[in-house]
Nucleic acid binder design. Structure first.
Lengths: 234, 234
DNA sequence: CGGCATTTGTTCGTATGTATC
DNA sequence: AGATACATACGAACAAATGCC
């Protein structure tokens, strides 16, 4: 691990364990230089990452202060899969694969996936249960050329873990939209809507480090279980 | 403007005007050092910001490549006020102030505003109409000590413009959550719900550059007009 | 009010390591 | 193997904001 990453990890641990509490000042840059035997630039880089990710806030002339000790809130602002977000929460979570098909890239899908028309797409529909209730319908589309070997067994576990650990691909960033839409036939079939007329749809286009898009996903949530949190900056 | 910011702005302009098209390589770090007479670190900082904000992607050993020429999607991920988001879209937008009161900071509000208990709070309720329909109910709470001189006339225009331009305060960051909640009495009174049982509530705690919170706001949206977009990264 | 110490902000120059082609 | 390009790290200097005396 790089030196700045080590400093970042140490400070992050101090914040998440609340050894450094919300509102307290971090050690100054010169203090950190001494204790880590690092240059100023290295120390500054670690602190900048804390700030970017919403854990700390630098204030000119005063210091750097702890913002939020809550790593879950941070993760929800980044790219996370369903398993990652709920694993910590101790929820009773089940996943059921209700469709696993392959189809060519054509028609309306072309508006969401930037790849060669006609490329093979792997479509997976999964229903997520929390406490027995069917609350999320995930519809994933993967570019089969980039994500080979995907099968139903993997889909029942975590696809993101497969992509990053088994295939060793680096996920870079996602373009995400959140909107409310009237329920579809699919929603009525697979979700426990309890009469709700709308669902919340989180759409993701996800890209690899080299800029190629490998995924387009719609995550359709029932209204009563939807929650999203992040930190926005000017 | 700082040097790295100048380089960032120049490159950004090249991308948004599509003089540098999606997929093309940016000038290398050494080339930029020459053309701007800047050090390596300064050039790198500008490029890092392009990457952070979703415009470019660095690839080790190859170069930096243009990702997206679309700055609007990026802005929506940051802090933006209602006026800013809809001014460009040419929507027919009206704002009506339905409540303007001052009250002491106490009770449940203490959970949302980090300020001295008992401080004076300015509460403003505004209804936003798009195309004549009442679609958003904004409930703002401002710490009166930090935002003096706020009156009903300003509330009918843009409060954020007043804060940044007239008061010359620097807005730094906001902690934001998005969730669906059952409609309240207030929602039924002020919004055209058309029978919808839920609204989408975007809550913001907004902070100044010096770390003081000056605002807590709930923005309550009807389901049929809610849309949110941003870029997430690993 | 000025002066001084502390802290972060910006920039420069240099050296070495690692990935790609 | 060599050239090119990005990644990490160090050291140094000056600027700007803050707080205290």
């Amino acid at each position: 691990m790089s030196k700045y990453n080590q400093i970042y990890t140490d400070l992050l641990a101090s914040i998440t364990t609340e050894r450094l509490q919300r509102g307290t000042r971090l050690p100054s840059e010169t203090e950190l230089m001494d204790s880590y035997q690092a240059s100023r630039g290295t120390v500054r880089r670690a602190i900048e990452q804390l700030q970017e990710r919403g854990f700390a806030q630098k204030i000119h002339g005063k210091g750097t202060f702890v913002l939020s000790p809550n790593p879950i809130e941070f993760q929800l602002g980044g790219i996370v899969s369903f398993h990652e977000t709920h694993a910590d929460l101790g929820d009773d979570v089940r996943t059921e694969v209700v469709e696993f098909t392959q189809l060519p890239l054509e028609g309306p899908l072309l508006q969401h996936i930037e790849a060669e028309p006609g490329s093979l797409i792997t479509r997976i529909k999964r229903v997520r249960r929390i406490g027995g209730k069917r609350v999320i319908l995930d519809i994933n589309h993967f570019v089969a050329d980039l994500i080979p070997g995907l099968d139903q067994a993997i889909a029942e576990l975590s696809i993101y873990a497969f992509i990053e650990q088994t295939l060793q691909l680096q996920i870079s960033y996602a373009q995400r939209t959140i909107e409310a839409l009237p329920r579809s036939k699919d929603d009525q079939t697979h979700l426990d809507l309890d009469g709700q007329s709308h669902v919340i749809v989180v759409s993701n286009q996800t890209f690899l480090q080299d800029g190629r898009q490998f995924e387009y996903t719609e995550s359709r949530h029932t209204l009563d279980k939807f929650y999203f949190s992040d930190i926005a900056r000017r």
